[in-house]
Simulated scan of single mutants.
Amino acid sequence: MRIRICILLLSLAHFSHAQTRSGNPVFPGWYADPETAVFGHTYWIYPTFSARYKDQVFFDAFSSADLVHWEKHGHIVDTSAIHWAKRAMWAPAITEKDGKYYFFFAANDIQNDSTVGGIGVAVADRPEGPFSDYLGKPLIDRFHNGAQPIDQAVFHDKDGSWYMLYGGWRHCNIVRLKPDFTGLLPFPDGTTFKEITPEGYVEGPYMIYRKGKYYFMWSEGGWGGPDYSVAYAMAESPVGPFKRIGKILQQDMKVATGAGHHSVLQIPGTDDYYIVYHRRPLEETDANHRVTCIDKMEFDEKGLIKPVTITKEGVAERRLK
């Protein structure tokens, strides 16, 4: 009897430990290009619904109090709310300002300047929406410096300035956003679209600021293949110049392939970081079969980002203070 009780206690301890980690993927379903945010005492993930472009016409969101248990908020915005969007809605970015939540997205996968589409903005009173069209038209609907208007990331600098990085087709631009997000502001040199494309860049830009340095990250390789990955550069200004340092996220043939298109979660008030990204399960060959995962992202003593170890276990439970 004593042996049985010991075995039972060990089993319960193992189960309890397993329940305090997120596991990867963090929630079920085919989701990609995850944007992460903290609003109040809640973690949020806003991913792309990973499907064929004709079916990729809405966004879901997910919230958590502890990084382990996630609640789904379905259809926070879709093409019925964005009259100019018809297909291929993807790669969201979100920020809060003055009690409003601004949701940036790409739609229609435009291939030239004569097609309707590009980067749009939606707005809501709550992080779970529902979101409505903020501008009634795309914020950026043309190619500038060769960059397809997709994959936007919003960056709020320490001086209060708002920037947006974006771009597909191996070109990345940075622009200054008006404080109300209704348009763009020129840089001091008079330019509006400043190209900051580093070596190896394909798409999916993202930026953080840490200890006096700007970290510019992006995705390399083909999004539908196993070589999809994330690399980065550093500079002392959000406009660079940026020189590629190396990869920080890529496939592990024991875990998953196609690890890329990420965002970064910093625990407020700490120097603790997580990388939120998508990857493809080993048994999957469909390009759209992507899942959202989270793992630790750490820095070395020189401030360089250590290569991320992708895991099946995910991260430990953590509530916001």
Results as ranks from 00 to 15, higher is better:
Q250F: 03
A88E: 10
L139F: 11
Q152Y: 00
L249R: 10
T115H: 12
S229P: 05
I3H: 11
R280L: 06
R244F: 00
C293T: 13
N112C: 09
E203P: 05
T36L: 00
G269E: 04
R319W: 04
A32M: 05
A122T: 13
R52Y: 01
S161W: 02
G118V: 08
I174P: 01
R318P: 00
P47A: 03
A124M: 01
H144A: 04
K137P: 01
K302Y: 15
H262R: 07
F39R: 06
K137A: 03
A81P: 00
T20A: 12
A37W: 01
T270P: 05
L10V: 12
G221Q: 05
K243L: 06
M207T: 06
W70L: 04
T292E: 11
D295T: 07
F143E: 08
Y209Q: 06
L67F: 04
A231R: 12
P268S: 05
E71A: 12
G160R: 02
H75D: 13
P281N: 07
D78P: 00
N112Q: 15
Y166G: 01
F193D: 05
R318L: 14
A316I: 00
N108C: 09
A93W: 01
I3F: 01
A107R: 14
D109W: 09
I7F: 15
P226T: 05
V230D: 14
M217Y: 10
G200F: 04
F187L: 11
K137I: 10
D157Y: 04
I294V: 12
I305E: 01
T292K: 10
S22N: 13
D271V: 02
K72Y: 02
E298M: 07
L185V: 01
T42S: 12
I150C: 03
H17V: 09
Y163L: 06
S229L: 15
F193Y: 15
N24S: 03
V57S: 01
I76D: 13
W70A: 03
F39L: 06
P205H: 08
S11A: 15
N145I: 06
